[in-house]
């Protein structure tokens, strides 16, 4: 069965490229027909998910990701780090505590 074959990232990428190339040759209407066919036969009926990928836009996803995040010289790194929005974690921590959770656990400061 096809769904039992091991599939690598490279194989998926190659297939996506070919599908993108193929998509370019289709008219808007033909793409709609293809979408409908894939919609009907290509996935379980109960699981809503778009049947095609980004088409021409998929190029934009290919190299979009890089490991790592913003950096700065060590002396300013602390202030430049992401996550500056502050908040407080409190509230009920005991499981099965409150249905109508509210401010009932916070002591005066």
């Amino acid at each position: 069965m096809a769904d039992e074959l091991p599939v690598t990232e490279d194989e998926l990428r190659n297939l996506a490229t070919k599908l993108d190339e193929f998509a370019r040759t289709l008219s808007e209407t033909e793409r709609g027909v293809l979408l409908t066919i894939m919609h009907r036969f290509g996935r379980p009926a109960a699981e809503p998910a778009p049947a095609v990928r980004a088409g021409l836009l998929s190029e934009g996803f290919r190299d979009a990701y890089e490991r790592g995040r913003g950096t700065a010289f060590r002396t300013v790194a602390e202030s430049a780090k992401g996550g500056s929005i502050q908040d407080a974690l409190d509230g009920p921590s005991v499981e099965n505590s409150v249905q109508h959770s509210g401010p009932d656990t916070e002591p005066p400061r």
């Binding site: 809503p48 095609v52 990928r53 980004a54 088409g55 021409l56 836009l57 998929s58």
Partner: peptide, 21 residues
Amino acid sequence: PSRDEVTGALAEFCDRGLMMR
């Protein structure tokens, strides 16, 4: 972009956990 391209791009964003549907 075409409607299909937009739909496809949305699916890609969802796949990467950057959007929800």
